[in-house]
């Protein structure tokens, strides 16, 4: 992945500096609160990584992946199964490799075909993996539950997720300026053209889906200590997949950091709804989907861009009008 331009532009440097500062500020949160706000911030950090990793693949390709819960669960299980025998960092790596491998298999089966096949395949994937894991556990081990005892507190998990966020952002930036990133932008524009300029489109899509899935697996691995007791239904919760899609689309997929704009408000909203109106969560997600499709088809970021453009155009029109007026007076 040789970079398109070896240099870092001034704008990129500014964004990197700002991002690092924001991460540093976010990292101090546990110094002030280790209860409700840390818990909420942990959820936000988790969905930031999940949604950014999701956008890495789905942004340029427009394929809607509902496989997040499957990758997440595989990451969680990698840790839960090995925590008594292997060191934690190694298990995180296993989670990455296992999720990426599953992503590769799914990709090979579906990414040569149109987006519909992919959505359908990923729609049931978490449920499928859950069934297989449950079946394997009941038949070959003693019972389905697993305990994950570690010394990690929520603070540690939160810091791990922040570090992971930084890694995902840097990876996304590197991918965007690599041949692979350029290939995916072309594929997202017109797959026929992509093939005819010499891009192995299936390979490019599978590769990126593996990177994206691998990161989602890492998130699941990092979260395992928080669960303490891991069971298939909690690890492979299909709602995770839908929440990732809705938050990422709500923010917008055009830019690497755009999902943030969806994750922060939606996580807070969803947290409140689950706490006070637990029977209304489906409705909220449903309405959010409708809102994205009908009101914000390019997410919050698209809305902001439109407003800016409108303002700019308005200003130009104003200037032109004044110019015309001036001319009229002169004549």
């Amino acid at each position: 992945m040789t970079p398109l331009l070896a240099t870092v532009t001034r704008k990129e440097a500014r964004i990197a500096l700002f991002g690092a500062a924001a991460l540093a500020v976010a990292a101090t949160l546990p110094l002030f609160d280790t209860g409700f706000y840390l818990s909420l911030a942990l959820n936000v950090a988790m969905y930031v990584v999940l949604c950014t990793a999701w956008t890495l693949f789905s942004g340029p390709t427009h394929y809607i992946s509902l496989a997040s819960a499957a990758f997440f669960g595989i990451g969680t299980y990698s840790v839960a199964l090995g925590i008594d025998t292997l060191p934690f960092p190694l298990l995180v790596a296993v989670g990455f490799v296992a999720s990426a491998a599953l992503a590769g298999l799914v990709g090979i089966a579906t990414l040569r075909l149109s987006g519909v096949y992919f959505v359908i395949f990923t729609l049931g994937l978490a449920e499928l993996v859950r069934q297989v894991v449950t079946w394997a556990q009941t038949n070959f081990t003693h019972g389905v539950g697993l305990y994950v005892f570690t010394d990690f507190t929520e603070t540690h998990i939160y810091w791990m997720l922040l570090a992971l966020a930084a890694i995902v952002y840097v990876t996304g930036w590197l991918v965007n300026r690599s041949r692979l990133g350029f290939a995916l932008r072309i594929i997202g524009n017109d797959e026929t053209v992509a093939r005819h300029v010499g891009i192995d489109t299936a390979r490019a899509k599978v590769l990126l889906f593996m990177i994206s899935g691998g990161f989602i697996g890492i998130v699941g691995a990092c979260l395992a200590p928080r669960f303490a007791y891991v069971e298939p239904p909690s690890a492979f919760n299909p709602m995770i997949s839908f929440q990732v899609v809705i938050m990422a689309l709500l923010g917008g997929t055009g830019r690497l950091w755009a999902p943030l704009l969806g994750v922060i408000p939606f996580t807070i909203l969803f947290d409140q709804v689950s706490a006070y109106f637990p029977n209304h969560t489906s409705l909220v997600i449903g309405i959010a989907f409708m809102a994205v499709v009908y009101l914000l088809p390019r997410g919050v970021i698209g809305f902001v861009d439109d407003m800016r453009r409108l303002k700019k155009r308005f200003r130009i029109v104003l200037v032109e009008d004044e110019g015309a007026l001036g001319k009229e007076r002169a004549s």
Partner: peptide
């Protein structure tokens, strides 16, 4: 066609959750 596919998938997901929410209630 691709855009219609993405839009209809997302919109019908919305309908799906709304219908489920109503039935749950």
């Amino acid at each position: 066609r691709g855009q219609l596919e993405v839009d209809s998938i997302l919109a019908t997901f919305g309908l799906m959750f709304i219908a489920q929410g109503v039935m749950l209630l």
